[in-house]
Each structure stands twice: as C-alpha cells, then as structure tokens.
Design a protein around this nucleic acid. Structure first.
Lengths: 136, 136
DNA sequence: TTTTACCCTATCGATTTACTAGAGTAATGC
DNA sequence: GCATTACTCTAGTAAATCGATAGGGTAAAA
C-alpha cells in the first residue's frame, strides 16, 4: 500500500509542476488546494528539499519551488525518497538490498524469483515516467 | 512491502507443488523445511484452504495438499488471498476499489494515473505466473 | 480409544503510520 | 530596524497493523 506521505508528496510536486512560472508556492496554498494537513505536508516538502528536489524561499512571498524541470524528475527519484525501496522484498532491492535471514538460497527462492520480475517492471515504469508526464 | 504472511504462503505452496505425489504434507514438515513459525504457518494454510487452494486431511498421515495442478494456480489468486489488493492505492484497485476521500477528481489525479500503470503491469505478471512457474 | 494433526479464538509486544503541538529562526518588505 | 511572514526542527501520540504466541478443541485415522 502506498503511504499517504508519498501520495501527498506526489500531489504537491505535481501542483508545483503545473505552476506557470517558478514563483515559490506557500505550503498553505498547496495544503488547501490538495486537501493535505499543512503540518504533515510541511515535513514532506522538507525531505524533498533536503534531497535536492525542491528549493525554498523564506519570508514574505516565500514558499517552495522545483529545482529542476519537471521532465528531468523521474518518479524513481521521488518514490525512493518518500516511499523507500521500490522492491516488495529487501532481497530483490537494488538500493536497499538485504538478505533474508530465513532463506537459505536466493537462487531457488520462489518469492525472490517472482518479486524480481515485479520489481523490474515497476522500476521500468517509474524510470520512464517523469513529473512532467503526470502534470498534463 | 510484502507481508511475511504472503511470503510464507508462497513458500509453502511451492513446497507443496514440488512434492512428487499428492500425499498430504504436515504443517510441521513445511514449517521446519522453510523456516516458518509453525503456528503462524497454520493460520496461513487455513486461509488457503478456506479459499479453495488447499485441501487437508486430518489424523495420522494427514496434512495439507494442493487441490489443483500448480500450473492452474495463477499468482493473482494467491496474492489477493494473502496480501489483499494488488494495486497500491484503493482508487485503482479492481477487486477492492474505494474512492479517495481527499481526491476531487480521479481523472486528473497524478497518483491515480501513475499507480494505474503500475497496477496493470504487476497484474499482468501475476496473471501470467503460475505456481508451476515458481516451482522449477 | 488413543494418537495425530488440523481447527479456532484470543492476546500481545513491537513497529509503523498519519498526524499534531509548539517553539524557533531566517528573510522580506515597509 | 522591526514586524510580519513563512520556513525549520524536535517531540510526541493515538490508532492501526504485523508477526508471532498460547492454549484448548475437535475430527479422523490406526
């Protein structure tokens, strides 16, 4: 299940991508427009900023804005930041790999085999979908 | 993240599918061989039985066995029983559809658009993968 | 009639999730 | 300067879920 954190994060990013210009958008504006708890959204935008997706401007007329062109922001990037691993099990994860402690041999593990296929496919989608694709 | 329930369930099913004949296999046997808590496994096999995937035989020489040929058991079936919805958000789920209460219009929702693609792809994999495919 | 092994209910600690509270700090415009 | 605005950060918390455990009940086979 997709977490609300990721869901809200994507919605906020799309909101910013749909903005005509690069003028900073206040948290409260996004919060109201997308029906997201302001404080919760605050923490989400903060992690997006810390990881180089967003920039922010303080003071009057401040807010958050995209640092890159929406077409240069693949969803793999966003998903990994907000949701974490794309794989459904750590033993098939590229960026968050972990060995299963109960599994003697990954080579013959059916779960591994199945989830590897799913990960490859999902990854492909996230790689080939940018923020721009979602903003039309 | 895939739940242990599903993970264990798949492993148990594969164990049964790899069995030469259709002789019932005891829970304790599967439990030891696959490193799964016996009591936990018990509840998993029970739901698989209740939903027509497994049969059971009581008393001495009893145990669980597959009711169908492994090649006739698609993973969609197994996944929905154990893991629940295949979609990452309820608003793109086929069997567990639910409207998002915060989303005014699914047609323009970026999350919906993205997760629909993921679901279609994942579903395709689960549909085209049977227990037999995982048991080789 | 005893043993085996499935069947069922209840509980529980740990973790995660979604969110809230509240104080602090930097920048902007007047 | 200085008040205002709006981002920054730390904690905490209610609720839900997960993974597992405990323990007794019951059906069927030998």
């Amino acid at each position: 299940m997709l977490s609300k954190k990721t869901k809200y994060g994507i919605k906020a990013l799309v909101h910013l991508a749909r903005q005509e210009n690069r003028i900073p958008v206040q948290i409260s504006t996004i919060s109201k427009s997308e029906n997201i708890s302001q404080k919760f959204l605050e923490s989400i935008l903060l992690t997006l900023k810390k990881n180089g997706v967003l920039g922010s401007k303080k003071g009057k007329g401040g807010g958050y804005y995209l640092l890159k062109d929406p077409k240069d922001i693949p969803m793999t990037n966003v998903m990994r930041l907000l949701e974490g691993p794309i794989a459904m099990v750590p033993c098939v994860s590229l960026n968050f790999y972990e060995k299963c402690d109960d599994c003697p041999d990954e080579e013959v593990c059916a779960v591994n085999k199945l989830m590897l296929k799913v990960r490859d496919n999902t990854l492909e989608i996230f790689r080939n979908t940018t923020l721009a694709d979602l903003s039309n």
